[in-house]
Design a protein around this nucleic acid. Structure first.
Lengths: 132, 132
DNA sequence: ACTCATACTCCTTTTTTTATTAGTAACTCA
DNA sequence: TGAGTTACTAATAAAAAAAGGAGTATGAGT
């Protein structure tokens, strides 16, 4: 993580919005790539780092790790460490996280109803891993 | 806007997520800074460019402009141009946009219940405009 | 002694997002 | 003629997010 510059307009604007409405704080948390997916997978009992990684084809270790840390910090998931070898760690959704997934579900339903299907530009070549 | 590189992992991952669930498309639209604020203001009948700018202290012309364009493109708001001088343009929420604000409202309620109040780091110096 | 596995962290580079600055048209009013 | 208005766009710079690649601890198995 690089340092934040606290006096940039960028940061001031972020503060302005978060102060203005909680909605902006919420969107700041869940608006980042992978976050909602990870949350939903954990809700569905995909509870280990390696399993999450399998499900989220293309995510890198470091990104998954930081997403998990953010979710723990926001108390949307809990982390349980088992002292055994090889190391085992499990993540579980919290009541707060569960409540959030319900709203996210509605957001998704809105999308299904209102976002027009459009022929999206597709990547020209296949993924490195051959899928897609 | 600079060109997208369609074969970067970055872009492939974005496609992966959007294909996986509509939720990611939705979050891609509303997860960006200012977007939800602008949508809500327009819902509250703040319908002109200059009025929106007044409300959103710190936003720059070009950013507001691109947020409005995105919202129009996503059909969350409509744009009406009056041919008079000085030029007048009005934005109005669409039924689809209205439905979205209802879900956003719930998201906000979730935040109010579940996001802990924390003493946020405050910018060291005041805004250029002297507010805050 | 060496390799393996899990679940990470750290540092660097790439890509995207957000902001800054300057400029436009078209017509009005002084 | 020249300044003022609204609602922009375009080019560029700064900041943040995302990805790439290497490295770590702990024992257990061979």
């Amino acid at each position: 993580m690089s340092e934040r510059k606290f006096n940039s307009t960028n940061t001031l604007n972020e503060f302005f919005l978060e102060e203005r409405c909680t909605l902006n704080k919420v969107l700041k948390i869940i608006g980042k790539r992978w976050v909602s997916e990870v949350l939903v997978l954990i809700k569905q009992d995909v509870s280990r780092f390696s399993n999450l990684k399998e499900c989220l084809d293309g995510i890198s270790d470091n990104v998954l790790s930081s997403v998990l840390n953010e979710l723990v910090k926001s108390k949307l998931i809990g982390k349980e460490i088992f002292n055994q070898v090889p190391l085992k760690v499990e993540y579980h959704i919290t009541p707060s996280g569960l409540a959030l997934t319900n709203v996210l579900h509605q957001l998704c339903d809105w999308g299904k109803e209102h976002i027009a299907y459009e022929t999206r530009m597709k990547p020209t070549f296949a993924r490195k891993d051959g899928k897609d």
